[in-house]
Design a binder for these strands. Structure first.
Lengths: 219, 219
DNA sequence: CTGCACGCCGATCTTGACCTCCACGGCTAT
DNA sequence: ATAGCCGTGGAGGTCAAGATCGGCGTGCAG
């Protein structure tokens, strides 16, 4: 979070800002517009107007619309990956790991400005650069999860990746559903429910594991 | 241009077709182009050329690009919903139900032409009509699944919907991953793995709800 | 005081894609 | 067979949106 940021309210169209501050402000305005309207419906005019500047200023800071979008996308991909890795590393108890990771997805989705839409609901997936970013962050998250799975279940890399993609997918899809539907279920309860589902599912797998001190939970 | 255009399926550029057949052919061509390029990158010229007709005939069958897209989208939403409902009704054994539903998603994704992209990876979600279709089919699938869950676990409607969205999400996300990655895992094995994951997860909830040996564990 | 540099703005250009207007050719009725 | 009808085809209009060029005002050095 930027500290000294004169957010909206009173943005007279004539204020002069240092380049770095102006750039950050433009990024903020662009995020709002892209999140609200999607890439294609968002016009550079809208972004400039939202920021309280004219279009040429926008082009003095970013080469074009695509680069502006990619800058935001990179930022939020990085953010998601960091959140997932942090959650996975937050404990060594696997059940808590599942809960922490689920919660990370929920927190990410609930993050201000709904920036998750840029990653999970982009309308520019045909653009190779965007596709590459989105696929990469999904894969990296899945790989991080699959490492834990492979280590603790002895499943093959391919199999654990399949399950990891599934767990990441569940988190992402349900978090978005929970956010969009004005569900009466509070966040903690939703995370808890999903954690039960996922943990019971994944904990049943150490078929090939040598020993199961995990199996204490064995239902 | 003087060369005979007898390329595939005998589509000489001058053939007159009955109205219904022409419409279906146009739908097929449009699907190919939309799937390959996405909505925005796809041009009406491309679709007309792909079908071997000129643009005016396209506009004699469809009022505009959006309506053409919606016709395809409706068709494939219907198809998905039908597949899921059929799978759920195919048996009364819950574990087999899970397996059948998973397999339905995989079959749907593997369906010819990759038409699932229109539903799961549309780049027109900003258009309210499209958003409405996509959200509706997701909700309807989730509702169908949640009915079974609610009936067999005694969970509340909200809770079972949350889990149902999760199960549908897993199926959809993993099926797409499995298709895109040239995974060495055969389809049956992948479905089986996911079924184990999902079944263990879902079966852990109070199966016979009336009796109250409820959650013996904390979460 | 005066010139200079810098950041900003109004107005404009161009591209590209959706959507129609004038000529051509096969089918049918008498 | 011939005249008419209707669907097809290519060329063009329109418009939205991304990208850019000549002025303007402010602050500072000399």
């Amino acid at each position: 979070m930027s500290a000294i940021e004169q957010t909206e309210a009173a943005r007279p169209r004539g204020t002069r800002l240092p380049r770095r501050a102006r750039r950050n402000q433009l990024l903020g305005a662009a995020q709002e517009v892209f999140v609200a309207q999607g890439y294609h419906s968002a016009a550079m005019d809208d972004i400039a107007e939202r920021a309280g500047v004219s279009k040429p200023v926008l082009y003095q800071h970013f080469p074009g619309k695509l680069e502006l979008y990619l800058a935001l996308l990179d930022q939020h991909c990085e953010s998601l990956l960091h959140a997932v890795r942090t959650a996975l590393a937050s404990t060594s108890d696997n059940k808590l790991r599942v809960a922490a990771t689920m919660d990370a997805y929920f927190a990410y989705v609930e993050d201000e400005g709904g920036a998750f839409r840029l990653v999970f609901e982009s309308d520019l997936t045909n653009e190779p650069a965007v596709r590459e970013r989105v696929d990469r962050v999904s894969l990296q998250c899945a790989e991080a999860i699959s490492e834990v799975i492979a280590e603790d279940t002895g499943l093959s890399t391919d199999e654990s990746m399949l399950l990891a993609v599934g767990l990441g997918g569940v988190s992402q899809v349900v978090a978005r559903y929970w956010l969009s539907s004005e569900s009466p279920i509070p966040r903690d309860t939703a995370v808890s429910l999903l954690t039960s589902l996922a943990w019971r599912g994944i904990a049943g797998f150490p078929l090939h594991a040598v020993e199961g001190q995990l199996s204490a939970e064995g239902h």
